[in-house]
């Protein structure tokens, strides 16, 4: 096995605590993500993994702690700003635009790159049309990459679950993100679908150099794909390190298998 070279820290999460009322969802979580790595967050249900992604994404605002992304400590940010900073994500429960085709969903992922204004789009001549064709080309590359040519024009509401997950990944990729947050991309899939998805995750990381933060329950997948793993349980950070190290950690084993007291 070849040695993976990890770059500088792109995302530093420092002492994050998040509560909803009296409920503490995240408690003093700290970890970092390095350029080009696949970083996994694991933990039992309700551990706060998705909340952690939502904090990174700017959907939730933590009460304590700081997030430094690309050397800049973040102020209170609006939800749409994450995308401007090159952060894209997929959702645990698919959040596609159901009435639109696969093509339109992925095209929507490129919304920040389209510069023509409303009047130009109304006339659909010159710049607006040029842009539409140019972005279509990019989107077709993604469609080829994810092998979803056949469902290009089908409304995504009609697609099977596994395909919807793939389209959602496509929409995130369309933004050409630096940091890709994947919230359980393989949940509810069969073995073949999981293998496909793993291949896509590795290829994205390898070909585009995208840094990936991954939440996943399938331990085999996590241990194979990840460079480093953070383990959460009930909002607490149990462990942080390479897969082999985490696998042997007694606290992690206890959290997953239960302890007899």
């Amino acid at each position: 096995m070849y040695e993976r070279k990890l770059g500088d820290v792109v995302l530093q999460v420092d002492g994050i605590s998040l509560s909803f009322g009296a409920m503490r969802v995240l408690n003093n979580i700290s970890f970092n993500v390095r350029q080009g790595e696949i970083r996994s967050i694991i933990g039992p249900n309700g551990a706060g993994k998705s909340s952690m992604l939502n904090v990174i994404n700017g959907v939730y605002h933590p009460q304590q702690g700081a997030i430094t992304y690309r050397g800049k400590t973040r102020d209170l940010m609006k939800v749409h700003e994450a995308a401007q900073q090159g952060i894209a994500r997929t959702f645990q429960n698919i959040a596609l635009f159901k009435g639109m085709s696969t093509l339109d969903n992925i095209m929507t992922g490129r919304n920040l790159k389209i510069k023509s204004n409303m009047l130009q789009q109304a006339i659909y001549w010159g710049k607006a049309q040029r842009e539409e064709i140019e972005h279509r080309r990019k989107v077709e590359e993604i469609i080829d990459f994810l092998e979803i040519q056949a469902i290009r024009k089908i409304p995504v509401g009609k697609l099977p679950y596994g395909m919807q997950k793939r389209v959602e990944l496509g929409r995130a990729l369309a933004a050409e993100p630096d940091l890709l947050l994947l919230d359980e991309p393989m949940a509810g899939m069969n073995v073949e679908e999981k293998e496909d998805m793993c291949r896509f995750v590795l290829d994205i990381n390898d070909e585009f150099g995208t840094t990936i933060v991954l939440i996943e329950h399938d331990m085999g997948v996590v241990m194979d794909l990840s460079d480093r793993v953070v383990v959460l349980d009930y909002g607490l950070q149990l462990a942080d390190g390479p897969p082999d190290e985490v696998r042997r950690n007694q606290a992690v084993i206890d959290a997953y298998l239960g302890v007899s007291n």
Binding site: N57, V59, V79, H80, A82, A83, Q84, A88, R89, F91, A95, L96, F97, K98, G99, M100, D104, M107, T108, G109, N111, L112, I114, S116, M118, Q121, A122, I123, Y124, A128, E131, E132, R171, A172, A175
Partner: peptide, 27 residues
Amino acid sequence: NLVRSNIGREWMAVRDMDIAAEIIGIK
């Protein structure tokens, strides 16, 4: 023309799933 361009897709994105629309950068 509008609904087949970017603004139309943004409208439909807001209609179908507003939080996802916001996360991919639609204001």
